[in-house]
Nucleic acid binder design. Sequence first.
DNA 1: GCCTTTGCTTGATGCAGGTCAAGGCGAAGC
DNA 2: GCTTCGCCTTGACCTGCATCAAGCAAAGGC
Lengths: 232, 232
Amino acid sequence: MRAEEIDQVRDLRIFNGVDDKHVDDMLRFAFLQRFPAGVELVREGDPADFLHVVVEGRVEVFSSYRDRETTVAVLGPGYCFIMAAVVLDRIYLKSARSLTPARVLLVPADSVRRVFAQDAAFARCLATDLAESYRMVVKELKNQKLRSGLERLANWLLAYRSEHGGATRFELPFEKKVLAARLGMAPEVLSRSFAALSPYKVKVKGATIEINDVESLTTLAKPAATIDDPAS
Amino acid sequence: MRAEEIDQVRDLRIFNGVDDKHVDDMLRFAFLQRFPAGVELVREGDPADFLHVVVEGRVEVFSSYRDRETTVAVLGPGYCFIMAAVVLDRIYLKSARSLTPARVLLVPADSVRRVFAQDAAFARCLATDLAESYRMVVKELKNQKLRSGLERLANWLLAYRSEHGGATRFELPFEKKVLAARLGMAPEVLSRSFAALSPYKVKVKGATIEINDVESLTTLAKPAATIDDPAS
DNA sequence: GCCTTTGCTTGATGCAGGTCAAGGCGAAGC
DNA sequence: GCTTCGCCTTGACCTGCATCAAGCAAAGGC
């Protein structure tokens, strides 16, 4: 990696408080790789060779079984994936593909594990990051098991809205079929669900969403801190 | 805690390699508590006061939302729960209740966090334990989203069988309605699913299960390393 | 012994959401 | 302008699972 690239990634969350020397150890053999959209970055079942950190663009994390596929998460800049597999030196449980053109930092797994064994601050970084990730998956599991498709959509809309300044109108950040996968439903069902939200004054025109009555949508969605609040 | 009790819990997995002095720091203010069956140990939404470790008995981890409830896991001795909430000093995302009479080690959250900040070995223990837990939830999420109820049952039977010596006959470790919750289905559906397994030579008599044709059951279940194998 | 309780099974019915097939529509190309 | 190609929507249909309502059988109380 070039020095200028190193500076771009040095203050990623996972390096927070870690000895510069150790960060350099990891980055020396790392790559900051550019990928076009639609490339498979990681395949489920492979041994964990690299810790991946999204620097730019969006990455979809998914898993397949027989002829089925399910999206687990859609990650933006700052998030790393497959950390657990790297720490434990196991195989990947999930696959990942770039949804948009993306830049991803690839840190060799063995250097991650080496620094993990030596640097207490890094071990703590990984532990808190893993704890965060753990809680994210738990929330997702609850979201899937305890809510209907319509409820998931309503909650997603409210959460996305408030993450982006709370404007009445906004654009979907990715294609509707990706959103459908993210919400765990077929694209057709997403369509119908959007239609079912019109009594709640949600207007959909292409990728543009308009939420004209947050109150009534909230009544339907019944958001819960222990599922939706990213800070709790 | 009494000295004799301390010895019982000192070599739990999470204290592996941790400085004795620090383990004592945590255990000094800990309780080894006995609970009857059916007691709520932890309530979703409460702040994380204690790290809980199951020493004896079985504990069901679950979550509620509106009038629904879902079981996330059933834990036996050696497992800790709500570690992520303790590390991050957040609220519990899940509730827990004892299924059987149980003994649970309760370690005050602040002493866990204090040792986490001081002792590198403990930070690494927590990190690997969190990584394991993370992978468990991911597997559970995949199990739920990618499989039908019948497939989940078939895989659970095969996994339980091989975890317990691979005998042809065995007893269910808990009530069928708990198993149903664990598998994410209504008790009635579990009943029907058991019935649907009789062509695969699975016999059910009360709590006794007999698997007479592992091969054909495996063909149905199609177990996958990235969902079912606890070691991968 | 009988009766109640509790857990489980079985049947009937309804609904959410998946699947298949046929358009509609906007963007890009010619 | 028209055509083509993806993406999305709409309609019709089907299936897996939840729900409700009995029945049944083993276990414990008296």
